[in-house]
Design a protein around this nucleic acid. Sequence first.
DNA 1: GCAAGGTC
Length: 938
Amino acid sequence: MHLIITEKNIAAERIARILAEKRYVETRREGGVSTYSFGDTTVVGLRGHVVGIDFEPGYTNWRSEKHTPRSLIDARTIKTPTDRKIVNLVQKLAKRADRVTIATDYDTEGELIGKETYDLVRAVRPDVPVSRARFSAITPDEIRSAFASPSELDFSLASAGEARQIIDLIWGASLTRFISLAARRGGRNILSVGRVQSPTLAMIVDREKEIEAFLPETYWVLSAGSERDGEPFTVRHATARFTSRDEAVAARDRTVAPLVVTESREGSKLDRAPPPFDTTSFIVAAGRLGFSASNAMRIAEDLYMNGFISYPRTDNTIYPASLGLDGILGALEKTEFRDDIGWVRRNRRSSPTRGKKSSTDHPPIHPAGPASRAELGEERWRLYELVVRRFLATLSPDARWTTRKVSFDAGGEPYLTTGSTLEQPGWRTVYPYSSATENELPPFAVGERLPVTAVRLEEKETQPPPRFTQSRLIQTMESLGLGTKSTRHEVINKLVGRKYVEGNPLRPTLVGRAVIESLEDHADLITRPEMTTSIDAHMQEIKQRQRSRDEVVNESRAMLHRAFDQLEVHGDEIGRDIMGRTLQEQLLGPCPVCGSDLRLHHVRSSQFIGCVDYPDCRFNIGLPATNWGFAIRTDEVCPVHGLNHVRLIAKGSRPWEIGCPLCHHIASNRETMGLMPSMTPALMDRLNAAHVYAVNEIAGADPADLALAAGLDQGAATRLREEAGDVLDLLRKRSELRKFVRTHVPPRRGRSHARIMKALFSRGIDTVEHLAASDPATVIASGIGEKEATTLLEAAVGLSSDRRLREMGIPPISLKKYYAAGIKRPEDFVRVPPTALMLRTGISPDTVHRHVTLIAEALGTPPPKRTTRVQLERGRHELLAIPGIGESTIEKLYAGGVYDAETLVAADPRVVAQQSGLPVRRIQDFQARAEPPEPAAG
DNA sequence: GCAAGGTC
């Protein structure tokens, strides 16, 4: 069998169909992975890298004394499968293969993926021949010729890729750990560092600093109005910008009619048709249509997967000869672009436009199949149309503009105006995206004298450089060689996710700035695009076998060690610096109690707002736990309290706007405050005004302070405090009940726990004990299903009994044994005879006696009779002496509380029968036989 | 828990 392995599933399918020629291609799915077979050939697609690189085991603990961040530099790296299913399938197929062809993408990363695949194959088949097919486009011509003359895997190129992998991992991981630990940030707040992300962040930070440092300069612009044949037009002074106001004013004052035409020059300007789309230019063009970079890529991938456009991740801007441009045009014939295609056919340029970059990986982005507006939907259609029109534009002639520059003189001052008309629209006929506005000028004749209707002097200011938009940043990254066609847009998302940048255009956050500035001070290289440049150069050397992979990696390790020499000396300083500067991002505004600042705190999964003067000022506001969303400060400020608003952000769901935290705090506490019997709305307002907002604040207040704050007498204040204590107690119990209900009643659509809880509270059920004592009907009426109500009640009874028993002093270890024997409630202990308890639990008679006595006391029932081990032993002999009683009967009698002749005789046979399961008649017989013989008379 | 690179 000939096994062909491609980089992705869709390539496997298309290659199979091409190579199968007219044969049927059989598709099989194994464990979610498709294979395509025809004749003796099977094609299977990987999913990019199916093995990943990581450190050898032992380096997972960031705080390990032994495995410090620095130790990662020299840690060994290993490759482990990241996609078991595919790895297994590839190896399974390889076992049956008599030759293997690796057909991954024709670029460095593709060669590395090919090498990884080669290793997987070799692990199970040391001898099978493995070849490599290289192609730049999945077109019949290219595929056929690539497979007709396969070559060998380029191990040097793959090694170059591996060097990059290792260097990225050790630099990224060690620096990320180091700086996160220094700044005491963990979990979702870690500070990441990387060869691509850090220089990208640095560009955004640098731009922001440029903007901040920018000093605007004032300048003046002089223009004049005139008209010709009733048509107004404007001319501007030949000095585009006056830097001196005096000069500008003087020029204005000299400007007097007539406005004389001194020269009119006509020219022609070539407006070249645009080159084919690569990923970057596509993202830029989509950006102009309002698509974010990652959104544009997401949609492009979708269009690609469905066969509407070609592979969207490419660096190529030159169509390969094999592409078959006519075929593509023909395929689009039946779309709504028919007229445009007709125009292109009639006006087609001799050869398509070419960009500056040609690469071997994939052709430029082009349409791959026809589509209609209706089947794609608005968003996808707009991008599909963009790709189609761009393709058409690359086949269209250049456009040509006629330009005109007219010069004037007014009182000796030179003026001019320019105009342009689209002489030959060329490609612009089919590509209406880039704005090109015509500005037609009247046919001025030299010497013509015109009026001056107005002279305008405007004062303007120079503008700072603009912030980066997403597409601008991606363009800049590309020009610096940062990232790849597939990853650039993801880097931006990563920076946003780490809360390093925000907004569009992109602004750095304080954290982002602090990290870059620290790195620039102590590990400058990682913040510079030159690191990528030098890695690229080293990769070239490895590829050309001038240096080995290990040589390059070791050199990089040495550099990283030098960076750590400096970092470790300044670790504390870096940590303090970052922490100090990022504190500001957590500050919300004035504390209502003491006037210093409130700040957000995040402690593992909990978060709250507290005063920076803690513990001197104890004011605080609780927030929902981070699983509801991570609390951040927003720019909006509450007009009443002067506090920044707070928002909870969670991945994958809409943000929760808390708004002003104090307003939120007041509103959410009004209800619970209202639970206090002597609370009135007026009193609540007075308390709020005195910065007392919550029940717990009242409960913890000094009655004298409270009296003063709320205008109450001492007695009323004390009472209020007690009431608050009671409400807190109630709230605690309610919250426990809420948790209890939540764990026992699974969430379901259309049933909110909040509603169930409200219903329970309104029925006076505030605690688990209340619940245990209530009847099923009440519980069902609160919106819980019948079956669930039963299990909920059972669980409540269990929990509340357990609590009572513990309170009565029964140790948990014994309770476990009682429960296992089915003795669950305190009442069971006084109902079931102690002998039965011993028998069923194996607990000693003395201990059972002690437990039952404790419970009886608590329940107010008579204490049990004490039975000792000796008594039991003697009783056993007495019972065994009675005819018909053996060991097994004794066990049953124990269950009925009978353990000797005396208790047998005294027992109520019906009760014993019920508890022991023995027939009443037998018990009566035993009793008769147990009667001691009448003492002989006389 | 860390990077960047594939792909879904």
